[in-house]
Each structure stands twice: as C-alpha cells, then as structure tokens.
C-alpha cells in the first residue's frame, strides 16, 4: 500500500510518501490510522489529533469506515486551504 503525506503532515512524518504493509487485520482507513499511530515516534506525533487529518483513498475523499487494500494509494493531509 502506498501512503502519501501533504503539508504539515508531510513535515511531521518526515517524508512525502512510502510503501507500507500493515497486517491483514487492517482493512479500513480508521484501522490504518490507528496502526500508523501505533508505530510511535513521528507517526504518533503527526496523528495525535485525528480530527485535523483528512484521508483520500485512490484520490477520492474517504471516511474512517472506508475499506482499503494492498494496491491502494492512501493520502493523509490537513483540511485544505486553497483558493
């Protein structure tokens, strides 16, 4: 699974993206966020407040209940501020 990060989430995680292989029990966006947070260090810090984290799966907005799988691109970013 490919993860990509933007804005301050990218800065706090310390990279723009990475390939990850969460355990098979991780099947939803919410499960992925909890698993990532459990990795500690930068991840725990970046994902401290999940109300400030938006998620897109394959470039579409997704809620915490959305299903995810090995081939997906999952993006984590703060609320958008364009325009």
């Amino acid at each position: 699974m490919k993860l990509v990060y933007f804005a301050w989430l990218r800065e706090r995680v310390g990279k723009a993206g990475e390939q990850v292989s969460p355990p098979p029990t991780v099947t939803t966006v919410g499960g992925l966020l909890e698993w990532l947070r459990g990795q500690g260090g930068n991840y725990a810090e970046a994902l401290k407040d999940l109300s400030a984290v938006r998620v897109a799966v394959n470039q579409e907005y997704a809620g915490h209940e959305a299903k995810i799988g090995p081939g997906d691109e999952v993006a984590l970013f703060p609320p958008v501020t364009g325009g």
Binding site: F6, A7, F77, V80, T81, G83
Partner: peptide, 23 residues
C-alpha cells in the same frame, strides 16, 4: 474549491519562518 480541492498554503513571514494556514 476552497473546501474540497487539495491545496495547502504555507505563508512565509517577512520576519522569517513559515506557517501553514489553518482551514
């Protein structure tokens, strides 16, 4: 566009330092 398009603004202060704009 302002609430859905994935853009993020980083402001560079004239005094130095950058701040991500909050939604």
């Amino acid at each position: 566009l302002k609430t859905k398009a994935p853009f993020w603004k980083l402001e560079d202060s004239a005094k130095g330092g950058g701040t991500w704009v909050a939604a």
